[in-house]
């Protein structure tokens, strides 16, 4: 029984990787832009597809059949591409809505979600395509004592913890992060100090969406790459964010991993509730502490 619990906890932690990375990006964007990016899940999905395309399709399309751009390269290229897509979205569309109620930017990004999802449904199988580019060095399994765990999944957990800590460090401990936090508190004052706030906003959105792209690449070898992989995830991420409170970076990361864990453990005790346990936890948090676990009570 204990082994089963530990095993499900590990698998839950594995889902927590994606909850943490996505709610982190959402929190970074929300902090400065006051925008809830509904398209975050769709950009994660696009990231996974780009990894797949770079490995399996690009070579065929440009006529070099042996070209397979590997996982490690994708881990660098894809976040940059998705970040650029994010910047394009911010520059051409989102920025026109800053003066209006934030629900409009939620609706705009919802529309973008439908467009991205619809495009990939047209060109790829809705049920998903496996990503064949898992690196050789991460194949195989590790014996953890209580279970046999795929090496790659262990890597994904470790890698995402490093990324989350790095983002936390940048925002909370560096000069750039200080500017960002100041911009969150009072953009006008920061502008008066000669800092280009609109540029900062654009780059922050690009950075947040880039994180979604990175999570997508990381997810590609674990889940099969399908157009709907981000759709249901984004709703879970919203619940994670409501539970954690969007105020803090650490809050987003910790609640992401913790809720993955809870979800995994629910599978042991009452499997049918595993889909909904996070939403029920959200209800409890709303009743007990409406501002969220890490949120500032207003």
């Amino acid at each position: 029984m204990l082994n089963l619990i530990l095993a499900q906890a590990m698998l839950g932690l594995n889902n927590g990787v994606f909850y943490a990375m996505l709610s982190l990006g959402l929190a970074v964007i929300f902090g400065l832009l006051n925008v809830v990016n509904f398209a975050h899940g769709a950009l994660y999905m696009t990231g996974a597809f780009l990894a797949l395309i770079l490995y399996s399709y690009l070579g065929v399309w440009i006529g070099i059949e042996d070209l397979h751009i590997n996982f490690w390269a994708a881990l660098i290229i894809v976040p940059i591409l998705i970040g650029a897509l994010g910047i394009l979205i911010e520059r051409t569309m989102l920025r026109w809505l800053y003066n209006f109620d934030p629900i409009y930017s939620l609706l705009l990004t919802f529309g973008i979600t439908l467009v991205l999802q619809g495009l990939f449904v047209n060109f790829f199988s809705a049920s998903g395509t496996p990503y064949p580019g898992q690196p050789e060095s991460l194949r195989g399994v590790v014996d953890l004592g209580f279970m046999i765990f795929p090496k790659y999944r262990l890597f994904a957990i470790g890698f995402s913890i490093v990324i989350c800590l790095a983002v936390w460090f940048i925002i909370e401990r560096t000069r750039i992060g200080a500017m960002l936090r100041a911009g969150t508190e009072n953009p006008d004052l920061v502008k008066a100090f000669g800092i280009n706030v609109p540029l900062m906003v654009t780059l922050t959105f690009g950075f947040g969406t880039g994180l979604a792209g990175l999570a997508g690449v990381l997810a590609a070898p674990i889940y099969s790459v399908g157009p709907l992989m981000g759709a249901d995830l984004i709703i879970i991420i919203f619940a994670v964010v409501v539970i954690g409170g969007m105020g803090s970076i650490m809050g987003a990361v910790v609640s992401g991993f913790a809720l993955g864990l809870v979800e995994g453990l629910t599978k042991v005790f009452y499997a049918p509730a595993a889909n909904t346990v996070i939403f029920f936890l959200m209800v409890v948090v709303l009743l007990v502490r409406p501002a969220g676990l890490f949120g500032r009570q207003s």
Partner: peptide, 28 residues
């Protein structure tokens, strides 16, 4: 009564998440 505990954008996110419970009930 749950969703009105938060305002604005959170209201939208909470209603979305709660509706997902109803969806899973309809499915399961």
């Amino acid at each position: 009564s749950l969703a009105i505990r938060r305002q604005g954008i959170y209201f939208a996110m909470i209603t979305l998440a709660l509706a997902q419970i109803v969806y899973f009930f309809a499915l399961q």
